[in-house]
Amino acid sequence: MSDQPVCHCLLCVEREVELDQADLRTLRSVRDRGWAIVMIPEDEDGPGWAFTVGLWHTLRSPEVVMLGLRVDVMGNCLGTLADRIAAGHHLVEGRERDDVIRNYPVVAKAVDTSWYRSLFGTALHFYQGPPLPFMEIVWPDAAGRFPWNDGCAPRLRELQPALWIPKDEHAPGPWTKLP
């Protein structure tokens, strides 16, 4: 008997579910490549974000999310990271890695489930709800300081919420206003 949780995603379990074009693109990408990257662009309400769908299904790796950069940059970073995970370079919470953004480290932090509905609707639909793990890929300011470091650029904290903190305990901002 396997210790791995059973996957209940749209590819593993047959069920009658209505799928739109975005769902079909996600399914094709996960089936063909192993994962998809969903990009939510910045708008008048706040910064953009990007996340993966399929890493859990394909590799039993947590899905990953980046926030606050241009979506094309985050999409490229997440694609690079997914390739590295597929090559056996797994995520370790709290450990810096230097293979995502050139000349800058990033740190993976486990996302509290209270953020899932606000940020990861496509993933929840694909997996037919939790449980599935997500990790936030946190990037530093130009001086290499992370949001939790003294002296980090204040704007960095606005662009990247601390998703490891429950949503109702997080400092108010554009991220906590998401439904």
Rank of each mutant, 00 (worst) to 15 (best):
M1N: 09
S2H: 07
Q4Y: 09
Q4G: 07
Q4R: 15
P5Y: 04
H8S: 09
H8C: 09
C9H: 03
L11N: 11
C12S: 11
C12M: 01
E16F: 13
V17D: 07
E18P: 01
L19R: 15
L19I: 06
D20W: 02
Q21F: 07
D23E: 10
D23P: 14
L24T: 06
L24F: 02
L24K: 14
T26I: 13
T26A: 08
T26L: 12
T26F: 01
L27Y: 07
L27W: 05
R28T: 12
V30E: 01
V30D: 00
D32F: 02
R33T: 08
A36Q: 02
V38H: 06
M39N: 10
P41G: 13
E42L: 02
E42D: 05
D43Q: 12
E44I: 08
G46T: 06
G46S: 11
G46R: 09
P47S: 08
P47W: 03
P47F: 06
W49L: 08
W49F: 12
A50C: 14
F51T: 04
F51P: 05
F51N: 04
H57G: 05
L59R: 00
R60V: 04
R60Y: 05
R60E: 04
R60F: 06
S61P: 01
P62T: 00
E63A: 01
E63P: 07
V64A: 11
V64R: 06
M66E: 05
L67A: 13
G68L: 07
L69G: 14
L69S: 14
V73E: 13
N76A: 12
L78W: 03
G79Y: 01
G79D: 04
T80N: 10
A82P: 01
D83R: 11
D83E: 13
I85F: 03
A86I: 05
A87M: 08
G88C: 09
G88Q: 10
H89E: 08
H89D: 09
H90T: 01
H90M: 07
V92S: 11
V92Y: 07
V92C: 09
G94I: 07
E96M: 10
D98S: 11
D99C: 11
D99Q: 09
V100M: 13
R102N: 11
V107D: 07
V107C: 12
K109M: 00
D112E: 02
W115Q: 10
Y116T: 06
Y116W: 15
S118P: 11
G121F: 10
T122D: 14
A123P: 00
L124E: 05
H125K: 15
H125P: 00
F126V: 00
Q128C: 12
G129E: 00
P131G: 05
P131T: 06
M135F: 10
I137Q: 04
D141S: 12
D141G: 12
D141C: 11
G144A: 08
R145T: 07
D150V: 01
D150E: 13
A153L: 11
A153D: 15
P154D: 10
R155F: 14
R157P: 09
L159G: 02
L159H: 05
P161I: 03
P161K: 05
P161R: 02
A162P: 07
A162G: 04
D168N: 15
D168M: 10
E169K: 15
H170Y: 10
G173R: 15
G173Y: 13
G173L: 14
T176W: 07
K177V: 03
L178H: 11
